[in-house]
C-alpha cells in the first residue's frame, strides 16, 4: 500500500496504517476464536495430561492461525490488487530485499518457537509419564543382572510407587495383569490416582494409545518400560494399538474403563472370582474367517492365542473417546 502511493501524502499513509491495524485486529480475533474452538477438535479429556496438552495445542493453534491467516491474507491481497492487466508486460517494483525486515522475520519466529519449546518442556516435566526403560535381551526370562528388570526399575522409580499393572501387547491382543493376579483384556483404572503401568511386547512393537488420555507409549519387544498416568474422568475409552503391528493391526483395540477407586477395588475383587477363559478377540475371529475362505490374501503370521483372562473386553460396549 505504501509502495503503491508514490506521493507521500498524509492521508493515504494514515489510511494504510489504519488498514493494517484493522487487518491485524481481525487476524487476532480469528486466531483467538480458532484457539478456543480447538478444544472441540479433541476427544473428551480423561486424564491429567489432557488439560495441559489441550492448552498447549490451543496455544499453537492460536499462534499458527495468526501466521496462517496473516500470510495467506497478504497473498490474497496481492492476488486481488497486484494482478497484471492482460497485455501489461511491465515489471513490478524492483525491490531486491530489506535487511531490517529480513532480520525481523528471522528473529520473531525464532522467539516464538523457543517460547513454545519452553512451554512444552514445562508440560512434559509436569506430566512425567515415562519412567525407566530396561532392556531384557536374550528373551524368555534371561535378564540383565541377578534381580531382573523389575527390581532395577523399582530402584529407579518413585519409592512410594504402587505395584504396577502389567500391560502386554501381542499380535493382536491386549492383556492386563493386576497386582492382585487378575488378568483382563480391558484395562480398568481407578479415577484420580496415579496408575503405574509396566509395558512390554512379546512379538513386535505395539503402541499403547488412549486418545482420551492424550497419551501414547510404544511397547518394545525386548524392553520393559515403566509408565504412569492419572485418569481424571470416569468412563469407558478406546485403547488403540498406534504402532503398526502387521496383519490385523487395525483390530488391535480394546477399552480402558476408568471408575471411582472403591468401584475399581470392588471390580478387582469380583474379577478374581471369575474363571480364567480365552478373551474375546477380533483378530482371532477375522483370521478364522480368512482360513474358512481358503486363506486368501497376502501373507500374515497367525494371531497369538488370545490371553486367558478373568474379564474379557466387551466388544458391544460403547466408548466415549
Amino acid at each position: 500500500m505504501t509502495t503503491a502511493s508514490p506521493s507521500p501524502g498524509r492521508s493515504p499513509r494514515l489510511w494504510g496504517v489504519l488498514l493494517v491495524l484493522l487487518a491485524v485486529l481481525a487476524d487476532l480475533a480469528a486466531s483467538f476464536w480458532m484457539a478456543a474452538a480447538s478444544h472441540h477438535w479433541l476427544p473428551v479429556p480423561a486424564s491429567a495430561a489432557a488439560a495441559p496438552v489441550d492448552n498447549l495445542f490451543a496455544l499453537e493453534v492460536g499462534i499458527g492461525s495468526f501466521i496462517f491467516f496473516g500470510c495467506s491474507g497478504v497473498m490474497l491481497w496481492t492476488l486481488l490488487f497486484n494482478r497484471a492487466p492482460k497485455y501489461d508486460l511491465d515489471n513490478g517494483d524492483p525491490i531486491e530485499g530489506n535487511l531490517k525486515l529480513e532480520i525481523v522475520w528471522t528473529l520473531i519466529p525464532l522467539v516464538i518457537v523457543m517460547l513454545i519449546a519452553w512451554k512444552a518442556i514445562d508440560v512434559s516435566t509436569t506430566l512425567s509419564t515415562l519412567g525407566g526403560k530396561v532392556r531384557v535381551t536374550g528373551g524368555h526370562g534371561a535378564m540383565h543382572g541377578a534381580e531382573g528388570p523389575a527390581a532395577a526399575l523399582e530402584a529407579a522409580d518413585d519409592p512410594a510407587a504402587a505395584e504396577p499393572i502389567e500391560v502386554i501387547g501381542r499380535q493382536w491382543s491386549w492383556e492386563f495383569i493386576y497386582p492382585n493376579g487378575v488378568h483382563s483384556s480391558e484395562l480398568h483404572l481407578p479415577e484420580g490416582q496415579r496408575s503405574y503401568l509396566r509395558l512390554s511386547a512379546t512379538d513386535v512393537i505395539h503402541g499403547f494409545f488412549v486418545p482420551a488420555f492424550r497419551l501414547k507409549q510404544d511397547l518394545i519387544p525386548g524392553s520393559v518400560i515403566d509408565y504412569s498416568l492419572i485418569p481424571t474422568r470416569a468412563g469407558r475409552y478406546r485403547l488403540r494399538d498406534s504402532m503398526f503391528s502387521g496383519g490385523y493391526f487395525s483390530s488391535n483395540q480394546t477399552d480402558v474403563v476408568v471408575e471411582p477407586p472403591e468401584q475399581y477395588a470392588a471390580w478387582l475383587e469380583q474379577a478374581l472370582a471369575q474363571p480364567l477363559r480365552p478373551a474375546a478377540n477380533a483378530a482371532t475371529d477375522l483370521y478364522a474367517q480368512r482360513l474358512a475362505r481358503g486363506d486368501r490374501g497376502w501373507a500374515t503370521v497367525p494371531p497369538a492365542p488370545p490371553p486367558l483372562v478373568h474379564v474379557s473386553a466387551d466388544p458391544a460396549a460403547s466408548h466415549e473417546g
Binding site: 509502495t3 500470510c71 522475520w105 519466529p109
Partner: peptide
C-alpha cells in the same frame, strides 16, 4: 520461514500473472 516470507515479499507490489 525466511523462505516463505521471501516469496510473499516477492509477490508484494508485483505484477502477478
Amino acid at each position: 520461514g525466511i523462505k516463505v516470507f521471501a516469496w510473499i515479499g516477492t509477490l508484494w507490489g508485483g505484477k502477478l500473472r
